[in-house]
Amino acid sequence: MIYTDFKETLSANKPPAEASVYLKALWYDGKGDWENAHELIQDLPDKNAAWIHAFLHRKEGDIWNADYWYRRADNSRPSVSLEDEWKQLVQAFL
């Protein structure tokens, strides 16, 4: 699957069955369902989950919390738009 294919799945009622938990979280976020996205990712202990968790808190406007999660992911808050970061995340996990 490529990015445009993933974007097209946003018209469906549920995420692609073969999608990883990371992509499922991004899928829910892409559908405007921040709560489900956050629920899927918040308790995962790895750096990939921390990156998505950081993005979700950045999107929420909780910058202090976002920066904490970016550090946990060994990243820093990007200067790109939220849309561009979402695309980067999706592409990283496809």
Rank of each mutant, 00 (worst) to 15 (best):
E35G: 04
L94G: 03
K24V: 07
W64S: 11
N48C: 02
D29A: 10
Y22E: 13
I41H: 01
P15V: 12
D62Y: 05
H53V: 03
I52E: 03
A92W: 03
S76K: 15
H38A: 03
L23C: 12
A50M: 08
E60N: 12
I2M: 15
A49M: 06
V80Y: 08
S79Q: 14
K14H: 12
W34I: 06
K24W: 02
I63G: 06
L26D: 09
Y70V: 03
Y70W: 12
D5E: 15
D62W: 07
G61Q: 07
F55Y: 15
W69Q: 07
E18M: 08
P15C: 12
L44G: 05
W27N: 10
R71P: 06
H38I: 00
F93C: 10
R58T: 06
Y28S: 03
N36D: 10
K59Y: 02
L44I: 14
L40Q: 02
E35C: 01
L26A: 11
H38L: 09
S81V: 11
D29K: 08
L40N: 04
R71E: 13
S20L: 10
L44H: 04
V90R: 00
W51K: 05
A50C: 07
I2Y: 14
N65I: 06
V21H: 05
D46E: 11
I52M: 02
L23I: 09
G32E: 11
D46A: 04
V80W: 02
M1T: 13
K24F: 02
A37F: 03
P16Y: 06
A37T: 01
N36K: 14
N36S: 14
L23K: 08
L40E: 01
G32L: 11
E8S: 15
K24T: 07
L56N: 03
Y28E: 10
M1I: 14
W69K: 08
L23E: 07
G30T: 11
A37I: 02
A12Y: 13
A37V: 01
L26C: 12
G61I: 08
L26Q: 09
N36F: 01
L44Q: 07
M1V: 11
S79Y: 08
Q88D: 14
